[in-house]
Design a protein around this nucleic acid. Sequence first.
DNA 1: GATGAATGAGGCTTCATTCAT
DNA 2: AATGAATGAAGCCTCATTCAT
Lengths: 192, 192, 192, 192
Amino acid sequence: MRVIDTDKIERIKKEAKILIVNKGYHGASIAEIAKKANVSDGYLYRHYKNKSELVKDILEKQLEQFHDHIFALLDEKQTLKSVLDGIISFLFNLSQEEPYAITFAHMLVYDHEFVYPQSRHDAINKLSKDLLNLGIKNGEISQTTREIDIQLTILNIPVKFIEYNSKGYYENYLTEKKEKELLINLCMNALK
Amino acid sequence: MRVIDTDKIERIKKEAKILIVNKGYHGASIAEIAKKANVSDGYLYRHYKNKSELVKDILEKQLEQFHDHIFALLDEKQTLKSVLDGIISFLFNLSQEEPYAITFAHMLVYDHEFVYPQSRHDAINKLSKDLLNLGIKNGEISQTTREIDIQLTILNIPVKFIEYNSKGYYENYLTEKKEKELLINLCMNALK
Amino acid sequence: MRVIDTDKIERIKKEAKILIVNKGYHGASIAEIAKKANVSDGYLYRHYKNKSELVKDILEKQLEQFHDHIFALLDEKQTLKSVLDGIISFLFNLSQEEPYAITFAHMLVYDHEFVYPQSRHDAINKLSKDLLNLGIKNGEISQTTREIDIQLTILNIPVKFIEYNSKGYYENYLTEKKEKELLINLCMNALK
Amino acid sequence: MRVIDTDKIERIKKEAKILIVNKGYHGASIAEIAKKANVSDGYLYRHYKNKSELVKDILEKQLEQFHDHIFALLDEKQTLKSVLDGIISFLFNLSQEEPYAITFAHMLVYDHEFVYPQSRHDAINKLSKDLLNLGIKNGEISQTTREIDIQLTILNIPVKFIEYNSKGYYENYLTEKKEKELLINLCMNALK
DNA sequence: GATGAATGAGGCTTCATTCAT
DNA sequence: AATGAATGAAGCCTCATTCAT
């Protein structure tokens, strides 16, 4: 019973993401999401108050997963560079396993129709602070670096790169290893 | 014979931008745009085939203005750094004169529902190439820098900064002069 | 001055007929009619209260022309057959000179959206009576023939034939002379 | 799980017919049809793609019923006259059971806005052919009679009579039996 | 007299949401 | 617990009509 239910919700979430990426929030209708997820229209409303709540939940979980991964990296790794390496690896993997995940988050975060949840704000702020401190402590980045600089580089550039690439705007893709290395250098140099 | 009131169109464009920024493309209804612009619902359709064409036109003009300005800077200035300075100044000014303009473009460019016009693709490609060549010729950036790197830094970071700032995510705003200088350094360092 | 005006009205009437035949009453917009007639939208309203009045007027005039022609034939000819010949000739001519005229009238007369004008009712009633009397007086048709029979044959069949033909439903068109002769026989036989 | 209320569809069809007869295709709004049928506006769209499809469906079914009835009569009866008798009886019955049915079909078939479905064209052609052959084989009608003559009489005159009558244009209605007999004679004489 | 810019009521249609089953 | 039939508010758009010029 439970297993089946969990599956249904997962299917809904997955199809919602795909449809929203392809058609936008309003373009993705509950009817189509439900149909693709092989679930009844009404089912959705037993778990979410409405469409908006469903999408907000997906978005929040997605961001949470990203942020939690970075927190884990911060616990684990000794240098900012290696954390950045971990972040980029995470994003590359996610992009392959769930091709729509990053675009989905990227779209909604910048769509003012949606309110960025406070918990994620707080997480981003703590993350930037921790990343900044680690980099400065290790002398990897300039003493004058600010949190905003971390956000504009480490938390922004890799996502943007994947977006460009997945949309086909970037045509000279090298190996994954090489691209990662170049991205790391771009970000680390910026903060020197 | 009445004369076409060009002001009306301008009001429509302005209110459309504001509403789309606040509520997204679908959230901004024709009725509300018309009401805010103090124009009748049907007026819009005497100038645009439909809602989509209106928005596409606003978006395209907005991007064109930005790209043309960069082309002008490339003609005028001798160094990549001074061009970047011009780009950032342009964005800061625009952000003050039309607070919604940048967010508007930023939103729609990443909304997969809208197709990025080919003319703008071509412009971006030419721009990146020209900026890259200038920087390399002057020895301001590494010989190994690629077009994608230009896009990820010069054409991305300043826009993102303004976005963060206008959304109130950035709380330690210094003087405009100082912020510009820091942004220039961030980008130029990245490409060193 | 006057001449120009008459022309404008005539152009409007002509284009209205054509458009209504092709697109129906609601499908034919004032804007398109005015454009095709090379006249301003508003011009029309200096002569007709509204769209409905314009169309009613065209219809009434069209029917009047038809009815008046039959009255003239009744004055002129000695036999029902020769009057019928005249009716059919009139319809064939009209169909060639104004290909849309008959279809226009046929469409609107059976569209209950439009009220058939009383004057035309009266005309039709008088016509049927006169045609009936003539036929009986001459012994050309059965003594028991009724007005309704006249309407179902003489006033109906030729119009229907032209409609079928102009719509391309009738594929074995002989000569005009032969078709007329066959139509006359069909109607006269019916009433024998 | 609720069950589809097939009655609703029937009510919609019925009210659509009535309103279209009274106000024409465009004059009959979805809102009014739905209201009269005691159904929500949107309900219609769960069963028909749009207004046009609804009306096309009603029209096609109506014509099909008529044509199929004639085909059945052709199988059953031995003479053209008795088939004609059956046709007229069918039309009189239909006119009483569904007073708007015939006018509805008559209107739309001659409204160039609607395309007469190919299947009905084919049916009419086959019908005329069969009726013609039967009449000639039995020596009931002239050897020189053509399909078009069948259409102009047998398939046209009875419908027209009912139209005139239901619209109140015909004032001397005898008994149904007598009227049928007179109509049969009118048509059969025409083809002699 | 004539124009055509502008209006806004009203049409068709979609789709998030509800609720009887 | 789950379904999907049914709703109706709200969206986009058209077009007859008006009226300033």
